[in-house]
Nucleic acid binder design. Sequence first.
DNA 1: AGGTTCGCCTGCGGGC
DNA 2: TGCCCGCAGGCGAACC
Length: 285
Amino acid sequence: MPELPEVETTRKGINPWLEGRIIERLEVRQPKLRWPIPEDLHQRLVGLKLAPLKRRAKYLLFPLLENSGQEAGWGFLWHLGMSGSLRLVAADAPWKKHDHIELQVAPLAEDAQPPLRLRYHDPRRFGALLDYQGDPAEHSLLRKLGPEPLSDAFTAQALFQRSRNRKLAIKLFIMDNAQVVGVGNIYANEALFLAGIDPRRAAGRVSLKRYQRLVKIIREVLAVAIEQGGTTLRDFVGGDGQPGYFAQELNVYGRAGLPCKVCGTVLQEVKLGQRSSIWCKACQA
DNA sequence: AGGTTCGCCTGCGGGC
DNA sequence: TGCCCGCAGGCGAACC
């Protein structure tokens, strides 16, 4: 499932092929994603120009410009859900099962390559494609989001303060988008292992010192994953390469019942908020 | 308001 | 080989 590093890698990978181009066509074969794709979106998009793609949390943002280069005052956002991927394909690429959407842009004069199209593939259809008006940060889906994990606004101090008296498990606390965005199940498990914190521990019972360590680790893990994403997911053009997991070594995720890579103790598993949580009872407390 | 559960989906693996 | 079932999971919505 795309976590923040995959979304960021996608943004970097597809932006060079889209930025500055005029939208010629949006083909929606399956409008039923998590929310229906607005019916008239395809009509309203044609003729507008794509500004540089942005990202907020796991949302890809596509701000729009008038042909003149002036801001259009709106744009669209794209969430990949659990199984979504965006790839650039040749114009004659056959539609595969679960290919739902294609965006076609006009090439720039200086584009050497034949025009490519952005194809959205999403078997489980938990993704979303919606328009936003004005400032995307004001959109209802983005408005209440916490800080970006790689920004200065993400601090141990804030996490510590906001967690006081909270009984919620620390793992669920750091997965709460209001505290920090982009920490999905995989990274929550991995970060807590690296920080030596039991995922079940009440967020309010985690010391400032441990939050400092945790914040540092979340930053490092995500930064490394984005770097590696640049390697493993470099090819966004052609091919069949469904973006997979990061090359990064996983210590606990998917390893319940296997020995801890550090101490050999059998890794435990428990459900927290319906998501599997794996930890080492010897290394994490 | 904090905390918990549901529901949207398809692919996959296990049991028979 | 095929069928049924349970499970996975981001995250907003609905609930207590």
